[in-house]
Amino acid sequence: MSCRVVVVDDAADLREMLTMVLDLRGGGDFEVVGEAGDGQQAVSVVEETQPDLVLMDIAMPVMDGLEAVPLVRRVSPDSTVVMLSGFPARTAEAGALEAGAHAYLEKGGRLAATLVPSLHDILSSQT
């Protein structure tokens, strides 16, 4: 059974690329069931879809990722939330984990190649 994913990022191109990476490199282990362009939309989509995994950007309009994480956790307590951000981990990871995220990944650094293995590691550590 595949991991159901919601991708949250204000950059539409990046959402599309993340979805392609999960589809093409995920070996059928991931299925993108929803997308959102800001934190507020994310809460609605997550509440509706109850995904296994939420890939959440930090800097977004309307409601940022740090504000959205506690609300996402409330409407879907079983979802694993992974923050995915262009900010270096040394400045943003602690805040993300404090907000309720399960893990923090930096964008960049050959993300197309590293995303799927990283997500596998995170999900297996949650079980």
């Binding site: 993340l18 392609m20 800097a59 993300l111 197309a112």
Partner: peptide
Amino acid sequence: VNDTIVQGLVTAEMTLDL
């Protein structure tokens, strides 16, 4: 900088990798 540069570079990098 994040919105303008980093997001674009990351997306381009992923697109190249695909």
